[in-house]
């Protein structure tokens, strides 16, 4: 299975930490090594928020994701801040509802997904994060197909269990988005 050195970046409230947790749980369920490290402090309250997820078959040394091989960017300041840190050959997923810029990095694979717009159209407000997670999975298999549902069930709080189906639906939308 592919190893992840992933950075999810955007505004606080876009569910980046949650999406990172779902992806981390996929690693946990499959018995792999992993780390999840959020930015913390005042930036969580409305400013930029980001979260690094490493999944590997080797022990994780530093959990800091300074040169993300995979980047999910959900707002302009985050894309601007991190695009140059992606190494050549990296994978970049952009929420094109939130970001109308095109990037000029021919050496990375870039996918523009209007995930915030798609989420609103489908009655899945707030799940643009999981749509992008689905697209990440489509382009880069970081776990077995059956693991995702199990990971979502682990991450959705028990009192909001109705959200499990919505998350699975969002994931599928992202996975099938061309």
């Amino acid at each position: 299975m592919n190893e992840l050195h992933l950075l999810l970046a955007g505004f606080g409230g876009q569910g980046l930490l949650f999406a990172g947790k779902v992806i981390a749980y996929c690693g946990l369920i499959e018995g792999r090594q992993l780390s999840w490290l959020p930015s913390y402090g005042p930036e969580m309250r409305g400013g930029t928020a980001n979260c690094g997820v490493c999944v590997s078959d080797e022990p994780i040394g530093s959990p800091l994701v300074l040169a993300p091989k995979q980047l999910i960017a959900m707002n302009k300041p985050s894309l601007a801040k991190f695009i140059d840190t992606v190494p050549s050959g990296g994978l970049v997923l952009i929420d094109s509802t939130m970001i109308d810029d095109k990037i000029s990095r021919p050496d990375v694979s870039t996918f523009y997904v209007p995930s915030t717009g798609l989420a609103e159209e489908q009655g899945l407000k707030g799940l643009a994060n999981i749509i992008l997670t689905g697209k990440l999975y489509a382009e880069y298999k970081f776990c077995k197909p059956e693991t995702i549902t199990a990971a979502i069930k682990k991450c959705v709080p028990a009192k909001r269990s109705e959200m499990v189906e919505a998350n699975i639906k969002a994931f599928e939308i992202g996975k099938n988005y061309k």
Binding site: A24, L28, S35, L37, P38, Y40, P63, L64
Partner: peptide, 10 residues
């Protein structure tokens, strides 16, 4: 330290 406090691991 803050890193160990904030990070999640299995």
């Amino acid at each position: 330290d803050g890193m160990l406090g904030q990070m999640m691991e299995p």
